[in-house]
Computed example of a mutant assay.
Amino acid sequence: MADGEVRATYQQCIAELDRLGIKYTVVDHPAAETTAQADHYIEGLEGARTKTMFLHDKKQRHYLVIMDDRKRMDFKAFQEISGAKRISMAKDEEITAELGLRPGIISPFGLMNNQEKDVQVYIDQMVLDQPIWTFHPNENTHTIFLANQDVLRFIEAHGFSYQVIDLPA
């Protein structure tokens, strides 16, 4: 998807989850610009608060990392785990080109727009251990709750595999 067009919408996400028969719950709320704001809007509800990082390396390979939103991304540890060199945050235009998403609203749901299937997916063990995960479903005015196994099924249904990693706390 080289044209850089934002393609991943809330409606696209919901339609795809429905097509796959994946059950979910959605909480509508005001726009959340940070994970702290999003967490406030869903306070008291069960589910791991996640953040999804979209990274690239010096060879412009892309990595999607799903982790607990309380953890800080340890770039050095990720490089050691993945074998990648010079990991950094992907540029806004890469996020849009590779995932069809707006910067700041990255989730595994953008994988359905990666036609080349060239994004490597990593999931932190701390999140994997939680039965329910939360994400923005391609818009920051909603938070979606899904079973962890359904998120994994979504990833695999779009032609991606994933690696489980143990990022330092």
Rank of each mutant, 00 (worst) to 15 (best):
E80W: 11
P168D: 11
E43N: 14
N138T: 03
Q125E: 15
E139L: 09
R153M: 08
R153Y: 14
Y63M: 07
P103W: 15
E116I: 07
M53G: 06
I95H: 04
G159E: 05
E46Q: 12
E116P: 02
Y63A: 12
Q60R: 10
K59M: 13
A8T: 14
L128Q: 10
N113E: 15
D92T: 12
Y63L: 13
G110Q: 06
L152T: 08
L146E: 06
V151I: 07
A84C: 11
P137C: 05
T141R: 13
Q12L: 15
M1Q: 13
F154V: 03
A97W: 00
A169I: 13
I22F: 05
R153G: 03
P168I: 03
G83H: 06
F135A: 05
V27Q: 03
M53C: 12
W133E: 01
L167P: 03
Q11D: 10
Y10T: 07
F145H: 08
I66F: 04
V151Y: 03
E5D: 01
A48P: 03
I87M: 14
P131D: 01
M112R: 13
D150V: 07
D28Y: 01
A36M: 13
I155E: 01
R19P: 00
R61N: 10
F54P: 04
H158Q: 05
R86N: 14
A147C: 09
T141P: 00
P108R: 04
R7W: 04
R70I: 05
H40E: 12
P168H: 15
I132K: 03
V119N: 04
K117M: 07
Y41C: 03
D57T: 10
T143Q: 02
E33V: 10
R70N: 12
T141G: 09
F54M: 07
D68P: 01
Y41H: 11
Q120G: 02
V26R: 04
K23I: 05
L20R: 11
I106R: 01
N114Q: 13
I87Y: 11
H158G: 06
A147T: 06
L101P: 02
T143Y: 04
Q115S: 13
M126L: 15
M126N: 13
A77Q: 14
V26F: 07
K85R: 15
I105K: 00
H56D: 14
A169T: 09
M1C: 04
D3V: 08
L167W: 01
D69I: 06
D68Q: 05
Q163L: 12
L20E: 01
E156P: 02
L99M: 13
K76W: 08
E156A: 15
F160G: 10
L55H: 05
G104F: 06
I14D: 00
I132N: 00
Y122P: 08
H56W: 07
Q125T: 12
L55A: 08
D39Q: 06
I144G: 00
V26S: 01
K51A: 07
M89R: 11
F160R: 06
V65Q: 05
Q37N: 10
T96H: 08
D118N: 14
T34P: 07
Q37K: 14
D118L: 12
T96N: 02
D69N: 15
A31E: 11
D124L: 02
I87F: 09
L55P: 03
D118K: 12
L64R: 09
A38S: 14
Y10C: 00
V26G: 02
A77R: 11
H62M: 03
Q115K: 15
D28W: 01
F75C: 10
V27A: 12
H40F: 13
P168E: 08
S82N: 12
F154H: 05
M73D: 07
